[in-house]
Design a binder for these strands. Structure first.
Lengths: 232, 232
DNA sequence: ACTGGACGACTGGTATACCAGTTACAAGCA
DNA sequence: TGCTTGTAACTGGTATACCAGTCGTCCAGT
């Protein structure tokens, strides 16, 4: 029962993430522990904890006596982060292909195949969700606790760089779906080299998409804006 | 002048790291914010901040109402951790070889060359110190902040896995020195492929050394213990 | 001797108050 | 007008006190 217990700081974290990525705050202006506290109706200490967590995740930068600033990412950073991602996730892919898919990955792969037969029958959201699940299951399939932990950290730490608006054009989503299916087949066939190459191409393509996106709308925060809460 | 300002929480962090990796605390027993605070003569809040930082670095695990536990790495994880290390440090090596050595790395390389001409003229410790510095400078030479941060996290989180007794037989240290020199030359020559291959071999050899060591003395933590401070 | 439950001494989580830096701005001087 | 300067309203950092969980221990009842 203690598992379901939730602390104020967790709630604060979720709310602040919504504010930042939901575009309800101006990224140029510093956040303030006290103002957030008042706005969210949560004590200052939990808010502070949440901000420290976001700081470690690279989302925010705390400057003592000056304020807490929302960080942005440069195109150079994006490229370097994706290089990092390539290094780790290709390793995971190779390992997964040598061991074969885990039950979760197999399940995911089956659903991808179904979707691949007629992508137009599914919404972008449905396809995208399975895609996310696929990436997670793949990491788990690698069967290396340290690697899994490392990837989790990377995703958290460079969250801003990985952040994408949830739904693209259906056409693009369908293409990505096909890439996932090809990847899955390579893993199921125990072809480490093929799988690794596919993953590398997949991720590089992802970087391009992300870079284009960054070029077209520098302030990425606005893209998913659902400012459902403004003042409380 | 504000740059040199140091907070209590920074001091607490340093001291706690010393305690944990210096072997002055029993890894099996939980740490306590209050006891650490009293022991270090630092307030509880800075100690708490430091522990949260260590938690995000994967060194420690906080269990509410139960305690703060030091995380360990199992011997089984060793191979996987080194695989991880290979993935990241080879990437760094490749990048460094493409960009050429940074001033710090060049300086380090020059000293390595001098030592390489007559290793017997130097102590194991001297050679080993420059070797450590070499690895650090190499990461910095890669010129990728995300990568550098990731490597730092990895070394911290799996510090126990990387942990080696400081001084081996001089003969072995001299061999490692030669590997470092070869690596440096490849980087200075801007030969990414050669450098990457050398690094891979270097790290795999390191894993073998570490595995042999683990076989001969399972409780590796004790090896560097210098419990210079116990109570304050 | 054994079991069950209450009590007390812990744990981390949070609230409040205060501290020391930083910054913006307005009043006063050149 | 333009620059200096001091003050007031911020900022995050820290101390202290108290809260609610957890868990060992010890005693009562079997």
């Amino acid at each position: 029962m203690a598992d379901t217990f939730e602390f104020e700081s967790d709630r604060a974290y979720g709310r602040i993430v919504e504010l930042i990525f939901g575009g309800a705050v101006d990224p140029a202006k510093p956040l303030s522990e006290r103002k957030l506290s008042e706005r969210l109706g949560i004590g200052r200490m939990p808010v502070r904890e949440a901000l420290r967590k976001l700081e470690r995740e690279g989302v925010v930068e705390v400057k003592p006596a000056r304020g807490t600033f929302i960080r942005t990412v440069s195109a150079d950073d994006l490229t370097e982060v994706y290089e990092l991602r390539e290094s780790l996730e290709c390793l995971a892919t190779r390992r997964a292909a040598m061991r074969g898919p885990s039950p979760a990955l197999a399940n995911c792969g089956a659903r991808l195949r179904v979707m691949g037969r007629d992508p137009s029958a599914f919404t972008s959201r449905e396809i995208d969700d399975v895609g996310t699940e696929f990436h997670d299951a793949l990491i788990e399939s690698a069967g290396s606790t340290p690697l899994e932990e490392m990837v989790r950290f990377m995703r958290m730490r460079f969250r801003l760089a990985f952040h994408l608006p949830r739904y693209f054009a259906h056409e693009l989503v369908a293409e990505i779906l096909l890439e996932h299916i090809a990847l899955f087949e390579a893993i199921a066939n125990r072809s480490p080299d093929t799988a690794e190459d596919l993953m590398r191409a997949h991720l590089r393509r992802g970087l391009q998409i992300r870079l284009d996106l960054d070029r077209s709308s520098p302030n990425l925060q606005k893209l998913t804006s659902r400012p459902k809460e403004n003042i409380e």
